[in-house]
Design a protein around this nucleic acid. Structure first.
Length: 576
DNA sequence: GTTGCAAACG
């Protein structure tokens, strides 16, 4: 009944004025009875309202003839249930200012909103009022409080509230359980799990994911088999655990075993293949997927972006936009798309993306901003990159690494080094990408000693320098004319060097007119990339520079015969 | 009403 009325209400697109007069209270109360997915559908089908319907609810509330605590409470609950947390909390505050006493519903909804947004002060102030409103003995309020503190990471307070509870239900137990798991305290979690008077499928899934995240797949599997009831989440947790450990075959086996799957199952598999660098298998699953949602597109686009297939990423993004009305990109999509653009050197997309974000009202988050830091750095717009970097809510390894690299490639070596120090002081562990940027900075500044120190610092941090790191070091040594040292470094590499490494040495030999190492480097380059003409011409230059004209001519003839281009590759700076 | 599986940036 109610459902029907709301539906016709939204579909008829009544004016606000009409709504104010007739349906206000009915709408507010009935919206709470709708499944979120249904409301979502309404929002999609009623495009005129989709952006403003939540604001609209507030409007309705304001124009109620007698807005009582009940109407306010319902609205707060409605907003909190549909992810409008800031709005929910602000309405809650407003209702208090009016001197209305919030119900248990309102309090728990407002608390939930604070828990989700991480609003520490908001939640704590609600907690302080709980006694005044006489809602302190409500299980729902208390459970939400427990959840709030676990989400803050304050397990002591969470535990205190939990212990004070006179009545506990499964949800209360699950909240404290997942709190310990989030805190990484598996021992305590296991104890809580054993103590629980009643366990539901969520309890089982929680402990399951705890062991899966630890990488203890034997234990995970044994819990999985013991479960009295399994949900999609149970299967998905198991599969994701195997994927995280790189045990693709096991993951696949359980995936194939499932006779019914949900979208998360598919996305988990796609993400797993992506991490293993197997974009092809990921795509196969993506194509097989029966009902692709925007999350599936996100997973696949990011797979391409992270496996150095930016063109495919953009192509799929294009497909996504064309795919239909109800698949819309979000911040996650754009973060990957920005990353793809940045890899391609598609600099024009930077401004395109920004206008897209503004036009569609997509919220800029740290992930997106970090991707933009990278993009603008590569455009040479360090100021813009800095602005974005400074605007971040939280700076993590990725953000620092992007900014350090940005400074490095734009010749701001000192800034890069400063940022690195700042990052270490903030106790953020640098990783391989961080050091790539830092080494690049030293390279640009020609600081050999510091570069070496940095290279060794990596090992102190338990990191194994990759081929790319070696390439930068070789370049640094080579530019300084330390060709033999560079050659020795290559020889000491644990894995086979790629053309970036040998190419750097060859380039250096060309600058320093060194035939001996130049010939060695060139030989390797020819072997690895026989069709790249640039290497032949570099060696020819070396010969010419020392007066070995015959050899130089021989190289050029070699090139002509193979009809090779002189320019090895096209870098992004040239594509603008 | 309150808890939960997956996915993002270098």
């Amino acid at each position: 009944m109610l459902l029907h009325r709301v539906k016709s209400f939204l579909n008829n697109q009544l004016t606000i004025k009409q709504a104010k007069q007739i349906h206000a209270q009915i709408l507010i109360t009935s919206l709470n009875h709708l499944q979120p997915s249904l409301v979502h559908q309404f929002l999609l089908s009623t495009t005129n309202y989709s952006a403003s319907v939540f604001v609209y609810v507030r409007e309705i509330l304001y124009h109620l003839q007698k807005p009582d605590a009940f109407s306010w409470g319902c609205t707060v609950r409605f907003l909190s249930r549909h992810g409008q947390f800031e709005e929910a909390f602000s309405l809650y505050v407003e209702m208090q200012k009016l001197g209305l006493y919030p119900s248990t519903h309102a309090v728990s909804s407002a608390l939930r909103a604070c828990a989700r947004t991480g609003s520490k002060t908001g939640g704590i102030s609600i907690h302080a009022q709980v006694h005044r409103y006489g809602v302190c003995n409500c299980v729902f309020v208390q459970t939400t409080l427990v959840d709030f503190y676990t989400k803050l990471g304050d397990m002591d307070t969470a535990k205190r509230v939990f212990n004070e509870m006179l009545e506990k239900n499964v949800v209360s137990w699950n909240s404290i359980l997942s709190g310990y798991l989030k805190a990484g305290n598996l021992g305590e979690a296991q104890r809580v799990f054993d103590e629980m008077p009643k366990k539901d499928v969520i309890s089982w899934n929680a402990i399951l994911s705890g062991y899966a995240k630890m990488g203890n797949m034997d234990k995970t599997l044994s819990f999985f088999q013991q479960m009295p009831e399994k949900s999609f989440a149970s299967w998905n947790t198991l599969i994701s655990g195997y994927m995280e450990r790189g045990e693709i075959e096991s993951a696949r086996r359980f995936f194939d075993m499932m006779h019914r799957r949900n979208n998360i199952t598919w996305i988990t598999m796609i993400g797993g293949y992506s991490k293993c660098g197997d974009a092809e298998s990921a795509r196969e699953l993506f194509d097989e997927m029966p009902e692709k949602d925007h999350l599936a597109f996100n997973a696949m686009i990011s797979c391409y972006a992270q496996n150095s297939e930016p063109k495919e990423a953009l192509k799929l993004f294009d497909d996504m936009l064309k795919s239909g009305v109800n698949i819309q990109p979000d911040g996650v999509t754009l973060a990957s798309v920005i990353s793809a653009c940045s890899q391609l050197g598609e600099l024009r997309f930077g401004s395109w993306i920004e206008s897209y974000i503004n036009k569609h009202g997509i919220q800029m988050d740290d992930h997106m901003a970090t991707a933009l830091v990278d993009l603008h750095s590569k455009c040479g717009n360090v100021d813009k990159a800095y602005k974005l970097f400074n605007g971040l809510r939280k700076r993590d390894v990725v953000a620092y690494s992007a900014m350090i690299a940005g400074c490095a490639i734009n010749g701001k070596a000192i800034d890069a080094i400063k940022l690195f120090q700042e990052m270490v002081e903030a106790q953020i562990q640098p990783n391989l990408a961080t050091f790539s940027g830092l080494l690049t900075a030293y390279n640009h500044a020609g600081l050999v000693e510091e570069g070496y120190r940095c290279f060794n610092l990596m090992k102190d941090n338990g990191l194994v320098p990759s081929t790319d790191h070696h390439a930068i070091m070789v370049d640094l040594l080579g530019r300084a004319g330390k060709l033999e040292e560079a050659y020795k470094l290559i020889k000491s590499m644990p894995v086979k060097p790629h053309t970036g490494v040998w190419g750097a040495l060859l380039q250096a030999c060309s600058v320093h007119k060194n035939v001996e190492f130049g010939e060695i480097a060139a030989k390797h380059c020819f072997e690895l990339e026989p069709s790249t003409g640039g290497y032949y011409s570099l060696l020819a230059n070396i010969y010419a520079s020392v007066g070995r004209w015959q050899d130089a001519r021989r190289m050029r003839r070699n090139m002509d015969r193979k009809k090779l281009d002189k320019i090895p590759g096209c870098s992004w700076t040239e594509s603008t």
